[in-house]
Design a protein around this nucleic acid. Structure first.
Length: 598
RNA sequence: UCGCGGGUAGUUCAACUGGCAGAACACCAGACUUUGAAUCUGGGGGUUGCAGGUUCGAGCCCUGCCCCGCGAGCCA
């Protein structure tokens, strides 16, 4: 954690992006510019990030956070964190704390202390009485099912409640009774009196208050009636002085109601304006707190901070730099089009950032023993290795070299396939930061798998080149057997195998990838990897970026692999082979797949 | 069925508001290389959902259609 903390101050982050990233704008910023030009809101810009504290933040929230904070920063405005805590069921102080931690980690600082919709409960209540007094709200005695039925359907009119025309006096008495505990949970609700014939369902006498004898994490048992989202949100915005209330597309129909409530009240404030944009969609990634909660509760992952989770905490543990997440959501942009971004774009931002900043280290994940047969008896060498070729200020380190080494099993082949140019008998490769070695012999186990490779080294090749200037095709990583340290390395694959989990009404959990984590315990790490800070991300050369676990520094999580051309070559070779061998089978399979998806 | 929103390379977005349809990521090829990484260069890719109309000129304006998403919680 220590190394991950405030790399950059939030304002720097926002401003740096605003100036270095594309200068193109979006419809929301254009709207703000237009508002400022017309003098609306007196040139004031105030946004807010309003999560409900009933779960942890995920990458989708990062888009909302970036939007709200960036817009405020770009126009000299403010942006607060407001907890939309109007429904105590599922809400918890744990999430309030967690959300604030995650927000800070991402690199944003609210303009003031955290705000809470629950702080406005009294004001909201008073305003409700005001609406009742104006004959614009009434207490309904019917149950949820009846009210739902009477609401009608798309293209069908609704039916007015028989309690709709109670007098303001009666309504006031009943509403106070609701507040004072005279009725059971669900026995009565307060409804706005709008239009049961509206083709916008939100306007068919929406619920403003429901009775819930559930203790609230902040107000405890002070209230047993709680305002609904629609009744609370716009008024909370107005109380705080929000000008631009940004939310996602599914609230589009609610905007009319948002405006209606605000226009009925005698507010001493400017009326805020709601604008909707598309939420973030990511391939292979459901974006739903409900789904994440099931993953956690069903034990499919270790918790909300499991490195496979798209939660901010998960990504942090996984080693995703907050700056990469910010750059990503910034690049995705803001539009009203429902869209799903390829997760590769996110990973590309992670690689770009980590390539620049992470120290290089050598780690052998699937070890194969190498014996240098012509190494001078009893000698040991300290070699100098560059810490980061992208950043020379990162300096160098020494790595120990001796007669017995570990290399990656993948880096030696008994029978090298076409285009493979790593080690095999008779071939010479370079050891990274070390010597050239040539394989001369190999031991195998009864199954024919190599167990020890015997090599000779060229004493003149130290530093990576020889006086005769001969070239080697491959450079491989290695670790001295005498000096290697152990550890645990977690390799991760996508948590979901379907690019669009849950598509077509299926259960997203049906496509959970059972092999999303592979834990390797028989790894050999260079000695420097015993000295790392929790949360630090290093590059294991030729393999990928790996984050030191936040709690156990001997555990590494693969953040993301390096681009791997050899893997692509192999994939293409396999494909070509299969095509040649089973062309009929394959084309049938393809046709079926197409039919299934169409 | 009704209302609202949306449709521009594989993906996400641009296109100075009617003037030669671009970028990033992805993909392919080459160069370079002590990471098959990074970096650099180049390339393939589009009937701007479809059909009409207005205009010298339409991704943008008009008409009709098609497709996708959201909306009938006392969730947010």
């Amino acid at each position: 954690m220590s190394t991950e903390t405030p790399v950059d101050a939030p304002d720097d982050g926002v401003e740096a992006q605003a100036s270095t990233e594309s200068t193109s704008t979006d419809f929301i910023r254009e709207k703000v510019i237009a508002d400022n030009a017309s003098g609306r809101f007196s040139q004031r810009v105030q946004t807010r990030f309003p999560p409900e504290p009933n779960g942890y933040l995920h990458i989708g929230h990062a888009k909302a956070i970036n939007l709200n904070f960036s817009v405020a920063a770009e126009f000299g405005g403010t942006c607060n964190l407001r907890f939309d805590d109007t429904n105590p069921e599922g809400e918890d102080q744990e999430y309030i704390d967690g959300i604030q931690e995650d927000l800070a980690w991402l690199g944003y600082t609210p303009s003031g202390p955290a705000l809470y919709a629950s702080d406005y409960f009294q004001q909201l209540y008073d305003w409700a009485e005001e609406l009742i007094g104006k004959g614009l709200a009434y207490v309904d005695d019917q149950d949820a099912e009846t009210i739902s039925t009477q609401r009608g359907g798309f293209g069908k009119p609704g039916i007015e409640s028989p309690y709709r025309d109670r007098s303001p006096e009666e309504n006031l008495g009943l509403f106070r009774g609701m507040r004072d505990g005279q009725f059971a949970d669900g026995e009565k609700v307060l409804r706005a009196k709008i239009d049961m014939q509206s083709e916008n369902m939100q306007l068919r006498d929406p619920i403003m208050y429901r009775i819930k004898r559930v203790p609230h994490h902040r107000t405890d048992d002070q209230w047993i009636i709680y305002p609904t989202y629609d009744w609370a949100h716009g008024q909370s915005d107005a109380i705080e002085g929000v000008t631009h209330s940004l939310c996602t597309l599914e609230f589009t129909d609610n905007r009319t109601l948002y405006d209606w409530y605000l226009s009925q009240l005698d507010l001493p404030y400017e009326q805020p304006e709601q604008t909707e944009y598309a939420r973030l969609g990511l391939t292979y990634t459901p974006m739903s707190k409900r789904v994440f909660a099931r993953l956690v509760n069903d034990g499919l992952v270790d918790g909300w901070d499991d490195p496979r989770m798209p939660t901010l905490r998960g990504l942090r543990r996984r080693g995703y730099p907050p700056s990469a997440i910010r750059a990503f959501v910034n690049k995705v942009g803001i539009a009203r089009t429902n869209s799903t971004t390829e997760i590769e774009l996110l990973e590309s931002f992670v690689r770009t950032e980590l390539n620049r900043t992470s120290l290089r280290r050598m780690a052998v994940l699937r070890p194969l023993k190498v014996v240098i047969t012509n190494w001078p008896e009893g000698e040991e060498r300290q070699l100098e290795a560059i810490n980061n070729p992208e950043d020379h200020s990162a300096g160098t380190r020494t790595v120990s070299f001796g007669p017995e080494l570990w290399i990656e099993q993948d880096d030696f082949k008994l029978e090298p396939p076409p285009k493979y140019y790593r080690l095999s008998i008779g071939r010479e490769v370079r050891l990274r930061a070390g010597f050239y070695i040539t394989a001369t012999d190999v031991d195998t186990d009864p199954d024919g798998n190599p167990t020890t490779v015997y090599c000779t080294y060229d004493p003149e090749s130290e530093g990576g080149s020889t006086p005769d200037g001969r070239k080697v095709k491959a450079t491989i990583h290695w670790v001295s057997a005498q000096h290697a340290v152990g550890g645990t390395v977690n390799l991760y694959d996508r948590l979901f195998s379907d690019p669009h989990p849950g598509e077509g009404g299926t259960d997203p959990l049906d496509s959970v990838n059972p092999d999303s984590r592979e834990t390797l315990t028989n790894v050999r790490l260079e000695a420097a990897l015993a000295d790392v800070a929790p949360g630090q991300v290093v590059q294991f050369e030729r393999l990928g970026y790996f984050a030191v676990d936040l709690d156990d520094p001997s555990v590494f999580h693969r953040t993301v692999g390096l681009r791997d051309e050899w893997a692509n070559i192999q994939k293409r070779q396999n494909k070509a082979q299969n095509k040649g061998k089973h062309s009929n089978k394959d084309s049938n399979k393809g046709a079926n797949k197409d039919a299934a998806t169409n």
